[in-house]
Design a protein around this nucleic acid. Sequence first.
DNA 1: AAATGTATATCGGAC
DNA 2: GTCCGATGTACATTT
Lengths: 250, 250
Amino acid sequence: MTTDRAAVTSLEEPSPDATRDAIADGIDRGALVTVFGRCTVDYEGRASSRLGAGDRLILCKPDGATLVHTDEGQQPVNWQPPGCEQEVYCDGGDVVLESARSTPEERLLVRFRDVLQVSAFAGSDETELTLSGTEADLRQRILDEPSLLEPEFRPLATERDTSAGAVDIYGEDAAGRAVVVELKRRRVGPDAVSQLRRYVDALAGDLHADVAVRGILVAPSVTDRADRLLSEHGLEFVSLEPTPETGCDD
Amino acid sequence: MTTDRAAVTSLEEPSPDATRDAIADGIDRGALVTVFGRCTVDYEGRASSRLGAGDRLILCKPDGATLVHTDEGQQPVNWQPPGCEQEVYCDGGDVVLESARSTPEERLLVRFRDVLQVSAFAGSDETELTLSGTEADLRQRILDEPSLLEPEFRPLATERDTSAGAVDIYGEDAAGRAVVVELKRRRVGPDAVSQLRRYVDALAGDLHADVAVRGILVAPSVTDRADRLLSEHGLEFVSLEPTPETGCDD
DNA sequence: AAATGTATATCGGAC
DNA sequence: GTCCGATGTACATTT
């Protein structure tokens, strides 16, 4: 998408040769190429998969990503990540699209029996997404107002390194005890509790054998099983959302 | 995609009214609709995001999913999951596509300044993907040949329930000790060790306070930190892949 | 390139 | 519906 003015080239029910050329040209020009048609899909790599004939929409992006979408689901039924090399050729009456990479070695093969439309889109997209309501927002909320966690909490570091990995927020409580804070932007299950536990254990070991380390999980809410795990391991929970709740007085 | 014969309807540089009608008709007919054009995107729900003007490809699936794809990345820059309600209308010279759902309440708003192509694809896709190299394959491998885990291992149950959740494989070793097996299809980090530890602790508690329970992690390999965690907690590791390695004598 | 943790993760299964 | 764990998770970040 490097041209100033967006442009589309599109063919309907093209011949195999025309399809191959249109896909190859689109890729060469750095366009986003779509193909709709009846195809089979084979994948071999981290796992392996086979998909029989059906009508699907294929996207080939200029960064080397390929997506095979059916009429259902948010996720592609098959794909190849950015950075892959594409190859397109005719085989018998079929058009074959191959996408491959190494590290890890993997290969996607889409074989089209019939192509109903092939399009190439060239445009420009300079804009970046701005996103809020993330874990980073939750961290900033606490750093801005540490009393949200508890009175007299003092943050000392973010991403503090321990032998078990980096702790989201490290600080001290009113009594000067070490506090490990694990942040989650949404309701959490057992995983998050185990993660917090690893950090607390590691920090206790890193500091001294007999130093008490508190662990506080911060999230909007926890599941029952996570709550039980927190209790079993002497960990604490503070309910907090990434962004302040909108007031009721609007 | 309910028609026997695949069909495409497509418009290039359509007017706003024609765009709105083409999108609405495609959705009504249960087609997979694509729109390429210059648009802004706003999302509000589990998080919130804003995306300025740029040329993008939008997919509207008959199951209610919406995807906004730029020319980069495997993932859509914005999306809405299956089950959403779509609405399309003109506002000034723009065409607006709204996609919303409740539980959780979230809303996606795509505002098109210019549309270069709108297409509706109707087809059929009865085929299911067959995938191999999954965790289920790894489990079956061990059930078929328990000695892959260790000599005289006896599987007793899969998905055995404990107070911490279901264990992948539960069995006994040669000495009659309880064994908890956690399976992973690929190289694992600290998460998997914590998960295994939760199950071992829970099962030990569920059975009796003084019963020894072995925990074995089965995966192709482990990271250094995970290996250290395994040692610290007296857990074991067996290297095994979901599918047998291809021999060297081919 | 490998490791680690987040995600508007998505998805499927169990309850 | 919620909960829980798998995923060819993808992705950014750091080492």
